[in-house]
Write a protein that binds this DNA or RNA. Structure first.
Lengths: 214, 214
DNA sequence: TAGATTGTTAATCGATTAACAATC
DNA sequence: TAGATTGTTAATCGATTAACAATC
């Protein structure tokens, strides 16, 4: 199905559509949704909704709209959410552990996305060997092997800036293909690795721009 | 200076340039940087670097490049980073407190950005009145007044999905103009309010897409 | 059937890149 | 001066929107 390379802009919107569909499904009753309603709730124009979906197939019925449950299932499949994703988290500081607890656990209660943190890593000898919510904290030196053995493809980095690049290389060495990086540094990695920067400093600086004339 | 409306795409890159300039400045020695080097380190083409900067003035010298310290100062001014920004954080759960501690405090050690969390808010009676890192946790019912009195313009929301919209409206009522929202929901707010969604579920779902053929 | 809405093509809009005269 | 690099204009590229025939 992925014959043409589909642009990042399109992929970025698919989870947005999923969120809207999930909301509708949760509310029950409504089984059909038009590109107008879907677009409105996702903050996207109806034409763009249709165009985005059309990249992957014909999911709607002319004159009728899209069947909510069917479209959800198709999007789940397209985004690979219909299988488990094993994740390791590197940097068991307060942010890392908060993410491990608050976010990930939470996501799994929605059973629409099976994200599973199977490893925690840190360099602090005081933390290594300890348990966190049932997951053992391991030394960063073991990452590559662990990731390789467990076929982990996703990782979250919450280590300090200085070690982020090094950690990323170890992860990739073990086969990781997607990284969510919280360290405020641009990681220099091979093109086939997908890095997503969650650098909150950048976001705040950007927001500050818009506050001038108030 | 903000005569033309400058596009979001441009603004998004400015903090990236700042980060590179900060790095260079920290390393000392080098006082000049070309659009080639700056672009390379920021992951942007040289032509685009020059075009972005040209929106705001003529900061470079032909045949020479840009003076690092001068450009930093100009960008700081453009992004309004040359003054204090008061922030409130709503939702004193593990993610909220981790952000308060790990991120924000940390940013302020770089003295290039004066982000100051002056208020924490939660609805849990057990938490209200307690101190966190010297900041009192207050009831969400007091937000609007607090924000108004202290002229707070920025806020971080880490409350559960159900209350995010309501909290956002209270903040705006008090004069907040920029919100960093961690709740996985699209906030429906006036156009003049700048909302930045840090919905990690969306990001993970997006990343999952790229993991299929491995 | 009549009304509604899809999927898709063509038109538009905006952002990035290429190119180069100006000039340090 | 000769070499380098800016600021800027024109060309290109890509993404979004408008429009509409197809059809449920």
């Amino acid at each position: 199905m992925k014959l043409d390379k589909i642009s990042d802009a399109v992929i970025r919107r698919l989870p947005l559509y999923m969120r809207v569909l999930d909301d509708i499904a949760r509310k029950g009753s409504i089984q059909l949704v038009s590109s107008y309603e879907l677009g409105d709730k996702a903050g996207v124009s109806p034409a763009l909704v249709r165009k985005d979906l059309a990249w992957f197939g014909e999911f709607g019925k002319q004159g009728v709209g899209y069947e909510v449950d069917y479209l959800r299932m198709e999007l789940r499949r397209i985004l690979n959410l219909d299988r488990e994703h094993k994740v390791v988290l590197v940097g068991a500081g307060s942010l890392g552990t908060a993410l491990a607890r608050y976010n990930i656990k939470r996501y799994n209660t929605d059973d629409d996305f099976n994200l599973n943190i199977i490893g925690l890593f840190d360099n602090d000898p005081q933390k290594i060997g300890k348990n966190y919510d049932g997951i053992e904290i391991r030394s960063i030196s073991e990452i590559t092997q662990f990731v390789k053995e467990n076929k982990v493809k996703m990782a979250i980095i919450t280590v300090p800036v200085e070690s982020a690049q090094e950690v990323a290389l170890k992860l990739i060495d073990g086969g990781v293909g997607a990284i969510l990086n919280f360290a405020p540094v641009k990681l220099d990695l091979p093109e086939n690795v997908h890095v997503l920067t969650a650098d909150l400093t950048l976001e705040f600086k950007r927001l500050a721009y818009y506050l001038d004339d108030e």
